[in-house]
Design a binder for these strands. Sequence first.
DNA 1: GCCATATTTTTATGATCATCGAAATATGGA
DNA 2: TCCATATTTCGATGATCATAAAAATATGGC
Lengths: 107, 107
Amino acid sequence: MEETFVVQALSALAQRNRLQLFRALVVAGPEGLTPGALAEALAVPGATLSFHLKALLQAGLISQERRSRNLIYRADYAQMNGLLGYLTENCCQGQPCTALPVPACAC
Amino acid sequence: MEETFVVQALSALAQRNRLQLFRALVVAGPEGLTPGALAEALAVPGATLSFHLKALLQAGLISQERRSRNLIYRADYAQMNGLLGYLTENCCQGQPCTALPVPACAC
DNA sequence: GCCATATTTTTATGATCATCGAAATATGGA
DNA sequence: TCCATATTTCGATGATCATAAAAATATGGC
């Protein structure tokens, strides 16, 4: 995993609106959510929401699919797991650590 | 875990210098590293380094201890694990997921 | 007490980010 | 084709961040 990608992904998550957005999508699971549903859930104006969804999308943390008139956003669990794993890589030079279970979400 | 803390921690990690700093401390393990060693390892001026160490410290991701003339910085593994767990909390409403192993580093 | 070393704080500058109203665009149905 | 709905892009504003030189501070040894 690229350091540049990791920084971008962490930047994307390091903001209240976007963190809530991402978590909502993580909880929603494979069905995902539309911008409309998210805007209502988080009580954020459409333009602001779109701005933040774009950031998460460009960071590769969520995906977008058109479903007729709606868009559907979903969390990208693979990227998320890669990101989490990166932070603990080579922890303690392997020495006194419990073998690092990379956090897995297999939705 | 507080959302405010999570955002601050993610912000702290969402920067190249700080990410490298944190990872270096994660790899270093319980012995930690001094600012001098870190400055040399990352090739960053002292003032810049100190600025970033402070951010990680205030975010609770690392700890500081004075050891005579040197300071020693260490990664805070508990906070890191809490942070990682937060991102996957309530994933997919519990449904089709492999039970979430929270990533553990027990250094 | 005084010096050398290690580290932090101050300060200034330029760069990037968050917000959201208004305008623009896409989509499906009539 | 034309309208209504869903969503995004544009644009302006204020706020926050990264950098690093220079000055300030802490520590231990002499």
